[in-house]
Simulated scan of single mutants.
Amino acid sequence: MPPTDASADAGTAPVTDIGTAMSLGARDGRIAEAGLGADSEDTLDMRLPDEIVAFFAEQPGAAGDQSSGADSRLFASDSDLPNVDDLLDHVAEYGPVSTPAGVLHLVPVRIERDLPIIDRWMNDPAIAAFWGLAGPRNATEEHLRAHLSGDGCSVPCLGLLDGTPMSYWELYRADLDPLARYYPARPHDTGLHLLIGAVGDRGRGLGGTLLRAVADLVLDKRPACARIVAEPDIRNTPSVAAFQSAGFRFSAEIELPAKRAALMVRDRSLRHLL
Rank of each mutant, 00 (worst) to 15 (best):
P3C: 12
T4L: 07
D17M: 10
M22Q: 12
R30C: 11
I31A: 08
G37Y: 01
D39L: 03
T43I: 07
T43H: 08
L44P: 14
E51D: 15
F56H: 13
A62I: 11
G64S: 10
S67N: 07
A70M: 11
D71K: 01
S79G: 13
L81V: 11
N83W: 10
D85H: 03
E93R: 09
E93F: 00
V97T: 10
T99P: 08
L104V: 07
V109K: 00
E112K: 02
D114E: 11
L115D: 15
L115F: 05
P116F: 15
I117F: 03
D119H: 11
N123E: 01
D124T: 15
I127Q: 08
A128I: 05
R137M: 10
R137Q: 10
N138V: 02
T140P: 13
T140C: 07
H143F: 13
G150T: 02
G150V: 06
D151R: 14
L158I: 15
G163V: 00
W169F: 13
Y172C: 02
A174M: 04
D175G: 13
L176K: 05
P178H: 02
A185P: 15
H188E: 13
L192W: 08
G200N: 13
G203W: 07
G205L: 05
L211N: 08
A215I: 07
A215S: 15
V218I: 14
P223E: 15
C225E: 06
A226H: 09
R227C: 05
P232F: 00
R235N: 04
T237R: 00
S239P: 07
F243E: 06
F250E: 11
S251F: 03
A258T: 07
S269P: 12
R271S: 03
L273R: 02
L274I: 06
